[in-house]
Design a protein around this nucleic acid. Structure first.
Length: 408
RNA sequence: GCGCCGGUCGUAUAGCGGCAAUUACGGGAGACUGUAAAUCUCCUUCCUUCGGGAUUCGAUGGUUCGAGUCCAUCCCGGCGCA
């Protein structure tokens, strides 16, 4: 993997460039489409590509449980298995430490709304009797499968081994995604754990990459993940430690910025981190986001984003438009024979009306979720492409202002 | 004409003396940020200053402190016998 910066955003951390992989070039900033189980839900790879996506992200934990990483390997690896010819990534399972652990059944997620700061009361660190499917152990995490209840112990080494079997172009270190509502003491502890896991991930990855090279296979790129919650000290410390971390002469090829954020903290947290991270390596803001987040991220020096929203919202009947999101099942669209957006170049907009989409959703027809996902992927991927172009054209600020004025 | 069985909030259902009335679908709205998610939540008789108030279970009478619920008559539908 090779990263090259082609143009910088004047006076800011933002930049535009390219990431070269053996499966092709990613023009950054770029939006990575999520295909957790080795499929972008409800859309096939041709449709993903035609919607403009350059790279997809699958999940270690899910593929490990089903069909199993050995099965993926036997099928020729992630790309071959899912018939995706472009660049690919896998997440390490670190997010599941959070979503199936501290966040389990609590209604909290990647981004939480803070209407009242006093709501940020630290969660009791040891509410360990709360039901959860992921429990943090001494040197790894014990997961109870949501599929069959079987218990699996995932260590950093195990996560990296699984990811090497899955065989994406870029993979992530095993980390602990924390909730912003945890207190400083817990964030600090979790961060130390994430750093120790990062080191072990890097070490295991070095071994496995050496093995690949000996077999004449292309090496895989490993991204380290920066955590630290909403604490400036911790975020900066993490960025420094992760970027300087070196095992057997190997360093991380790029960086992920992780954690669950309060919306209003996200921008500052990302800036803290990117001011410290080395300029010459790519940065991936994990699990983000909404259009306004993408502008924020690019401006703050992010090169890659991924998010489930375009496909999840699409399947659930919410559709992006430049004037905001719409609920396609709402009464007003039942007889609306215009496309979602007149000037949209996506397959859905070129061929179908809102009334038809509304009909498909009301009739619970599968095609509804597919067509809505295609549009949403196109919308978000293309938005990031346009943001990228605005960096080259020198009008990022204007584009941001114009877009958000209409959208929000 | 006689005999059964049945008529409940758009539809289909529950209900067997204390009920504004069950459940499902349909309908309305909302949520979703490294996917436990083609999922989830709320509303769906009328009015409401959200405390509550007013009318409801084919119709009309009746029994009862109290009636979809019991009784009588009538209306409508299904089946059977003439």
């Amino acid at each position: 993997m090779k990263f090259k910066i082609e143009k910088k955003l004047e006076g800011k951390l933002g930049r535009a460039g390219t990431i070269e992989t053996i499966h092709g070039v990613i023009e950054t900033p770029a939006f990575v489409v999520v295909g957790t189980k080795g499929t972008v839900k409800s859309v096939n790879p041709d449709q993903v590509r035609d919607a403009g996506a350059q790279v997809v992200l699958a999940n270690t934990y899910h593929l490990y449980l089903q069909p199993g990483d050995e099965a993926v390997k036997k099928m020729g690896g992630l790309n071959k298995m899912m018939n995706w010819s472009g660049p690919s990534m896998t997440d390490s399972g670190g997010f599941q430490v959070f979503s199936l652990g501290a966040a389990y059944k609590k209604g909290i997620s990647k981004v939480i709304q803070i209407t009242n700061p006093s709501l940020l009361i630290p969660e009791r660190f040891d509410d360990s009797d709360a039901p959860r499917l992921a429990k943090i152990g001494q040197d790894g995490v014990s997961f109870t499968s949501h599929l069959d209840g079987s218990v699996h112990y995932i260590t950093p080494e195990k996560s990296i081994q699984i990811q090497h079997n899955i065989g994406a172009d870029m993979i992530f270190a095993f980390d602990e995604c924390t909730s912003p509502s945890e207190d400083f003491k817990y964030q600090e502890e979790a961060l130390e754990r994430t750093h120790s896991w990062a080191e072990r991930s890097l070490k295991e990855h070095g071994k496995l990459n050496a093995l690949r090279q000996a077999q004449g296979k292309q090496s895989i790129a490993l991204f380290g993940i920066v955590q630290g919650g909403r604490e400036e000290v911790l975020r900066k410390k993490s960025a420094k430690i992760i970027s300087e971390m070196e095992v057997d002469g190997q360093k991380f090829d790029g960086f992920g910025i992780g954690g669950s954020f309060a919306k209003e903290d996200m921008s500052t947290a990302v800036k803290w981190v990117n001011e410290v991270l080395p300029e010459e390596k790519p940065r991936h803001l994990l699990g983000i986001g909404e259009p306004e987040d993408l502008f924020m991220g690019v401006e703050a020096g992010v090169d890659l984003f991924d998010c489930v929203l375009p496909t999840r919202l699409g399947r659930n009947g919410t559709i992006y438009t430049k004037t905001g999101k719409i609920h396609i099942m709402n009464t007003e669209y039942r007889l609306d024979v215009a496309p979602i957006e007149n000037d949209c170049e996506c397959y859905t907009c070129k061929n179908y009306t809102k009334a038809y989409l509304a009909h498909l959703f009301h009739g619970k027809e599968m095609l509804g979720g597919t067509l809505a996902s295609i549009h949403n992927i196109y919308f978000i991927v293309n938005l990031v492409k346009k943001i990228r172009q605005s960096i080259f054209d020198g009008n990022f600020d204007d584009y941001k202002k114009d877009f958000l004025k209409l959208y929000l």
